[in-house]
Nucleic acid binder design. Structure first.
Lengths: 242, 242
DNA sequence: TAATACACTTGATGCAAGTCATGGTGTCTC
DNA sequence: GAGACACCATGACTTGCATCAAGTGTATTA
């Protein structure tokens, strides 16, 4: 049966529409087959369903195939801290490797499909296929640099800069997946955005309203259109090509 | 000539006093020899000397052998953002893997010695020695989780909590190296501390003075003694065993 | 030992974002 | 379609930390 629904599991790495933006970058056809053999595709996750929880025994990393996943950890006093949003083609769960248990929880923001990649199999494959090892090192390094960007954002930037940066980041990640750079649906709540960016819901709401009034964006609930991407980049204080 | 000075380069992974807290954890003796063959030990870095700069072509990761290194990146508008402090036994430079160029600059806070580990050699060794691959995956994952902890700190915690957490973190890393848990020298300036924690120098200074008055710590310039580690942990809002 | 620069401390004031409160709007359930 | 509930928007008030402005060490050099 050919693929019809985006959450369909009758799919292989070879024919996945996400193609090289996921793991199989730079792999030979033979190696893609090997990867395909270890990837497990279960039923889709429903909204609010957990992929794994903080403290669970670490077994696998996951590639998001459709939908969106939020990663978060609990602070000492039980508050939630959102550490990232993961879109199709992105890999989640690499924080679990160091202590053999997940350091974050991962929860679906909407109905989502993921590919499970058992880590011990991935390790084996990585020793056999150097380009696989390299690619995985790169993915982890990317996670480090994106966390460091967030650190900078949190300690140096204003509320407006933070929110503009998030919108630009989502836009760029959409473009990578050949989706619209200017029009998309925010899969997460305002609360999640605020939590991720170190702001309160009220501030997020106010800033989004302000951007709307200023004509930088057009918002209707979760639907966002970036009307002035350059203007938004100016607000975000980022170089124009990023 | 036997080792006399802590910055001495006449040393090998086999006899390094840092032992397993660095890379050679869980390696067989033969494998340590292999690692030793690829590790390069240059002259010590003087204070304020750069190990590498943001944007430099990525070639190697570095193990700190003595001294202390600070990692930082420049924001769009040229401000500095300190992303981490690295002490003996810790590995720096893993952020460079993803784009084949360093995402941070690394600068010595005091006279320091480092072991250079060329990354392509490390990759080769990793395909040959699975425990090496695993250890390096773990190190990178650890970097991810520590960045995520910092993200939480920056977006959820007060100035007092941030500074208490930093003191506790340095204390714990000292303990790992079999050094005093309660008495140490801060190798970085107050400005660097503030920059790292998302605070101004003034706030750092005030909080440290307050901790001093409250009898939690005793400070004299860069020399710090933690007088009440439990009290400090209470201020930091962390579980007592971390 | 004086001179200079730089790192740190301390106090006074202002502001960006948090908190609290209220009302609106969309969405799910029965 | 009524009720319940989560989510979102917006106004009034509060506050923690930044900013500004001196002043006080503490190294470094001549």
């Amino acid at each position: 049966m050919p693929e019809t629904c985006p959450h369909n599991s009758a799919i292989s790495c070879g024919n996945c529409r996400l193609g090289s933006i996921c793991l199989p970058l730079a792999l030979e056809t033979d190696d893609v087959v090997k990867l395909d053999e270890i990837v497990q595709r279960g039923r889709p996750l429903q909204k609010n369903e957990h992929l794994y929880r903080e403290g669970d025994h670490f077994t696998s990393v996951y590639a998001v195939r459709s939908g969106a996943i939020k990663a978060y950890r609990l602070t000492g006093d039980g508050q939630e801290q959102v550490t990232g949003f993961y879109f199709p083609g992105e890999i989640i769960g690499m924080d679990g490797i160091s202590k053999d248990q997940y350091a974050c929880s991962a929860k679906a923001l909407e109905t989502s499909a993921v590919c499970e990649i058992p880590f011990n199999r991935l390790e084996e494959l990585s020793t056999q296929v150097p380009s696989m090892q390299r690619h995985f090192f790169q993915l982890m390094s990317q996670e480090i640099t994106s966390d460091q960007q967030l650190i900078t954002l949190l300690s140096k930037n204003s509320a407006e800069e933070r929110i503009a940066s998030l919108l630009i980041s989502i836009s760029a990640r959409n473009a990578r997946r050949k989706l619209s750079r200017t029009h998309f649906r925010l899969p997460m709540s305002r609360t999640d955005i605020g939590n991720f960016l170190g702001l309160t819901v009220e501030t997020v709401s106010r800033v989004i309203s302000r951007f709307n009034k200023q004509g930088l964006i057009a918002v209707e609930n979760k639907e966002v259109t970036l009307l002035d991407l350059e203007g938004l980049k100016a607000v975000a204080n980022v170089a124009s090509d990023s």
